[in-house]
Design a protein around this nucleic acid. Sequence first.
DNA 1: CATGAATGAGGATTCATTCAT
DNA 2: GATGAATGAATCCTCATTCAT
Lengths: 206, 206, 206, 206
Amino acid sequence: MKILPVDPSPTKPSPTKSSPGKPLRADARRNRERLLATARELFLGGKLDFPLEDIARRSGVGVGTIYRHFETREALIEAVYQQEIGTLCACADELLGRLSADDALAAFLGQMIDYAANNRGLAAALCSIPDAPAFTAGPRLLMEAVSRLMRLAVAERRLRADVEPGTVLTVITSLCRVNDDPGWKAQAHAVVALLLDGLRLGVARP
Amino acid sequence: MKILPVDPSPTKPSPTKSSPGKPLRADARRNRERLLATARELFLGGKLDFPLEDIARRSGVGVGTIYRHFETREALIEAVYQQEIGTLCACADELLGRLSADDALAAFLGQMIDYAANNRGLAAALCSIPDAPAFTAGPRLLMEAVSRLMRLAVAERRLRADVEPGTVLTVITSLCRVNDDPGWKAQAHAVVALLLDGLRLGVARP
Amino acid sequence: MKILPVDPSPTKPSPTKSSPGKPLRADARRNRERLLATARELFLGGKLDFPLEDIARRSGVGVGTIYRHFETREALIEAVYQQEIGTLCACADELLGRLSADDALAAFLGQMIDYAANNRGLAAALCSIPDAPAFTAGPRLLMEAVSRLMRLAVAERRLRADVEPGTVLTVITSLCRVNDDPGWKAQAHAVVALLLDGLRLGVARP
Amino acid sequence: MKILPVDPSPTKPSPTKSSPGKPLRADARRNRERLLATARELFLGGKLDFPLEDIARRSGVGVGTIYRHFETREALIEAVYQQEIGTLCACADELLGRLSADDALAAFLGQMIDYAANNRGLAAALCSIPDAPAFTAGPRLLMEAVSRLMRLAVAERRLRADVEPGTVLTVITSLCRVNDDPGWKAQAHAVVALLLDGLRLGVARP
DNA sequence: CATGAATGAGGATTCATTCAT
DNA sequence: GATGAATGAATCCTCATTCAT
C-alpha cells in the first residue's frame, strides 16, 4: 500500500527479490522495475490473474525475463505488495514529527483509507492473496507502525490502554478489502472516526 | 451466512434458481441440494475456484447436471451465498423478541462473527464475489436487518443517532473477509465491542 | 428440395421413418410433423448442427420424443431431406403435361434453381450431408426425374443424344450447394441456359 | 487447390500468417509447415472438423503450438486453402504460353477438375467454407485467372462474348464440391466439355 | 407415449513454466 | 541475460443419448 495515489518512481533499487546478488546490470535493473510497474498498473484494475505473457509484453520483454527476476508468479505479486506496503509505512515517522500521537494515529489510518480509495483495485487485489507465508512481512510492517503510534498515544494519555493494536489493524485492513463501491471512501472514514471515538472513550472519563 | 456451523437441512424447496418452473422432480431436487451442499463444503476452505468436475464428482453427479441446475459457476456460488445469508438474517427477529434493541444488535453482530469464525473459508470466500449485480440481494438483506436493529436501538435511546447502518455493516462484512488467522475470532469480537463502545458513546452524553 | 418456397402442409402420412408400424396416434403424428417442420425451419439458416434439445423445445416436445420418432439425429435430417426431394420431383410429371420435353427439362432444372434460391440455407445444408448410404434414395429420385425428361427430349429430337443425364444432374446439384451469394440465382440460371445451349447444340446440326 | 496431387515442398517461407513479424525461428517455421502439411493431409479425407489435438499430435507438436501459429481453427484452414489456390492459379500463365487462349481455358478448367479429382476430400472440404471474409482472397484469384483466359479467348474470336466468367467459374467450383463418387472425374470432364461446347457455340455462327 | 433429468465423452482453450536459440 | 516457441495439464462447456418418472 502506498499513501499517495500513484508514484511509480522508486529511488531505491527495489530490495525485494534478488537477496544476495550483485547490484544488477543497468538493463536488468530497468527490466525489473518495468515489470513491477506494469504489474502494479494491471493490478490496479483489481485482478491479479493476468497471463504472465501480458505482463511481459506490456513491459517490452519476453516471458523468460519475468522468470529471471521472479521465481514464480507469486513472487512477482509479492514484490508489488511489499513495495506498496513499504511506501505506505514510510510516512508514519513523518506524521509523528508534526502531530500529537493520537492525531498521528488518526492521520495514519486515514492515509491508509485514502490509499485504498485511490488505488481501489490494487489494494483489494493485493489483499486477496492472504496468508502465503511470503506475504507476512507486509502485515508485520503495518502492525509495527500502528503499534508504535498507539503505544505513544497511550503514553500521552490520549488513548484507552486496553485496546490491542491488532484490533485496530484488523478493522483497517479488513476495510481495505472492500473498497469497491462508490461511497466507500466516506464510509471508511466514518468507520475510522467511530473507531477513534471508541478508542478515546475511556480516556475522556474521569 | 448461517449462524450455527453447518445445518444442511432446508425445509423449503430451495427457492433459489428455478424461478418459475414446476416443483422439480424428486431426484432433480435431491441433486440440486447435494450440489449446494458440496459446494458449501468445498467453499469452507476459502477457495471458490474448484473445477466444476470436482464439485460434480463429490456430489455423485455428472458435470452436465451442474449446468442444468446452475447456468454458470457464478450462479452456483450465488445460490450458496443466498442460502447462507438467508439463514443468518432469519435470526434477527428472534433476538429482538428476547433482548433490548441494542443488545439484540450486539448479539446479531456477534453472531455474524461467530458464523464467520465457524465457517472460516466460506465467509471469506463468499465475500470475495463483490459487486456482480446478482449478488446484491444478499447484502441488501443484511443491510435491512442491521438497519432495523439500529433504528429500534436509537428509538430506545440506546444508540447514537448519527451513525449510519452502512458504516456498521461495512465494518462487520469487511471483518468477515479476513477471518484467516488463529486469533481472529477474539479479535473480531473485540472490534465489535469497541465499535459498540463508540456507538453507545453519544447516548451517555446529555 | 421443394420447388415452391415453403409449403409445410404435407397431405400424406410422411412415409419416412416408421416403416411398418400402425398409422400413428393422432398426437404422435402431430409431433412428428412438428419436429420435421421445426427442423426444416432451423435448417433454412444453413446450419444443421442444432442441439436436438433446441429442436425439441421449439416443437413443444421433450427430447425423448425426437428419439421416439427418429432413431438418431441423422434420421431426422434425412427425413427432412427426403421430404424436400420428394416434393421437388413430384412436379416433373406436371411439367411434361404441358410442355415439350426439352422445355420441361429446362423448366425442371430452373425449378431446382429456384428452389435452392428460395431455400438457400436449407438446400446448401442438406447437400452437405453427402454420401451417407441413407441419403442415396434422394439423389436416385432426382436422377430418375432428369433421366426421364432427357430421354423424352432426345426422343423428340430436341436434345443431343450423347450426353448422360448424370452429367446434367451433376451440374445442377453441384450448383445448389453454392447458393450463398447475392447474385447466385441469376448466375445459376445463366449456367442452365448455357448448359441447354450445349445440350441442344448437336440437334441443330444437320 | 493444387494441380498436381501432393507437392509438399514449398520454396518460399510460407507467406500466409505472420504478416509483419520477423522471419520466424527455424524450428518455429518447421512446425508451422508441418502443421499445414498435416492439416492438408487430414483434409484430404473431406472433413475439416478434426480435433485440433489430432492435428497437433500427428504433427508431433503440442496443441498450444497450433494456437501460437493460427489464432483460430479457421485460420489454419484458410492457410491451407490459400496455399492450394495459389499453387493452382500459378499455372494459368504457363498454359497461355503454349496454347491458344480457348485451349488454355479448357486446359485450365481441366486442371481444376484433375486437382479436385486427385485431392478429393480436400477440394470438397475447402470449398465448404464459403463466405467468411477471410476466404475471399482465394476465389478472387481464381476469378482473375478465369477472367483473363476468357477475355483473351474472346479477343481471339474463339469464344462467345456474352458469357460472364463468373458463370463459368460458378460451374467449376460448384462441381469441385461434389467430387465424392467413383465416376466423378469422368463426369466432371464431360461437364467441362459440354460447357465449352456451349461457350464456343455462338462463335461458329455467322 | 411423453417428458426432461442425468450422464459423460469430446473438443476447445488458456497459461504457467521450461528451454533451445 | 534475453527471447519467445513449445509444451501439456487443467478446465471449461456442449450435446447426443439414455432412462427413470
